[in-house]
Amino acid sequence: MPFIAEDANYWFSDGSYRGIEEIRSAIEKTFSTILDEVYEVRDLEWPVLTTGVAVCRYRFAWTGVVDGEPRSGQGRGTNVIVRRDSVWMMLHEHLSS
């Protein structure tokens, strides 16, 4: 959470979340739902990379246990990262399956 900007906006398959508290709640829900998760990033590309802004896009895959059953999924992701006061912060994440 310390590297997520206060004004961040996250778009997940189940909804959109604005601000640190909404994002924290969504992430905590995911972590409590998917047990023993293994998350893999593939085909990482950096189409924008400057001293103040970085944008990456990638494919992801995950496996884990949901409600006692093995589950898995995959999709695409995009992240916008900005440099604020010499610290890189996540400003936007978009994950879709």
Rank of each mutant, 00 (worst) to 15 (best):
M1C: 03
M1N: 10
F3A: 01
F3Y: 05
I4N: 00
A5L: 01
E6P: 13
E6F: 09
E6D: 14
A8F: 02
N9D: 09
Y10F: 06
W11C: 06
F12V: 09
F12M: 00
F12T: 02
S13L: 03
S13D: 08
S13C: 12
G15T: 00
G15E: 03
S16W: 12
Y17W: 10
Y17A: 02
R18C: 13
G19P: 10
I20T: 06
E22A: 10
I23D: 06
I23C: 01
I23M: 10
I23H: 01
I23V: 10
R24H: 11
A26F: 07
A26G: 07
A26N: 01
E28D: 15
K29F: 14
K29M: 14
F31S: 12
S32E: 15
S32P: 13
S32G: 15
E37S: 04
E37K: 09
V38H: 13
V38F: 11
Y39T: 03
Y39C: 08
E40C: 08
E40W: 13
E40H: 08
V41K: 05
V41A: 12
R42Q: 13
R42D: 09
R42T: 11
D43A: 04
E45K: 00
E45F: 00
E45P: 01
P47D: 04
P47V: 00
L49H: 10
L49G: 01
L49P: 01
L49A: 05
T50H: 09
G52Q: 04
G52H: 08
V53L: 11
A54K: 03
A54F: 08
C56K: 04
C56L: 00
R57S: 03
R57T: 00
Y58K: 07
Y58S: 08
Y58G: 05
R59Y: 07
R59P: 14
F60T: 01
F60M: 03
F60K: 01
W62E: 04
T63L: 13
T63M: 11
G64Y: 06
G64D: 03
G64S: 07
G64I: 00
V65D: 11
V66G: 04
V66W: 11
D67S: 08
R71F: 06
S72I: 05
G73A: 09
G73K: 05
Q74M: 12
Q74N: 14
G75Q: 03
G77I: 06
G77N: 11
N79Y: 11
N79E: 12
N79M: 14
V80I: 01
V80K: 04
V80R: 02
I81S: 00
V82F: 08
R83M: 04
D85A: 08
S86K: 07
S86Q: 12
S86P: 11
V87D: 15
W88L: 11
M89L: 14
L91G: 15
H92C: 09
H92S: 12
H92P: 12
H92E: 12
H92W: 12
E93P: 14
E93F: 14
H94S: 15
H94L: 15
H94Q: 15
L95T: 01
S96R: 11
S97V: 03
S97K: 09
